[in-house]
Amino acid sequence: MGVMVTSESARARVVIRLDDRLIHGQVVADWLRWLAPCDIMVVSLSNPPPDAALLRVVTPQQYDLAVLTPEAARPLLSTQVVPHNRLVVTDSVSALVELLPSGWSGEVILGALAWRVGREYVFERVYLDADEAEVLQSLADSGVRLIYRARYHDSGLLWRRR
C-alpha cells in the first residue's frame, strides 16, 4: 500500500515510487486514479530538470503537481503537511536517497528503472547497476521496505538480498 503515513486527523497516505519514466501511463491511468483525491510530486536531481510545464499539461487537471529537488521535497513527506494522499515519484536511486529523511523507515515502490548498458535485471521493469543495487540494499538493511509493483493492485515482489 505504499508508505503509510497516517496522521491523527486524516488517513492520508504518501506513496513514494522510484520510476525514471516519472509521469506516464501507469502513474496517471492507474496510481493517481486509485489514490485520488491526491496530488503528485516529481522529485529529481537531473540536469536539466524535468520539463515541469510539459508534465503539468499531461497530468489531468484535478491533480496538483509540483516538480522539486529532493531537498525541497523532503519536508513535504511529513504527515503535518499532507492534507490528502500524495504520490511522490522520483527518477533515480540517488534522488531517492537524498529524498528520504535520515532514519526513515517505510515503503518504497519500485516502479521502473530502464535497462541501459551496465544495468542488470532485477524485476520486470527494474534494471540496476552494481552501485545502485548496493545503495538499495543498504536502504533495505536500514529498514526501508522495497517492493516492486507496477500497478496499484499488483501483489508486489519484495526486494531480497542479492
Binding site: R21, I23, H24, G25, V27, V28, A29, V58
Partner: peptide, 14 residues
Amino acid sequence: MGPLAAVGDTLIQG
C-alpha cells in the same frame, strides 16, 4: 515517451 503514455493510456485504453 512518458508524457504521451500518460495521456494515451489514460484517454484511450483507460
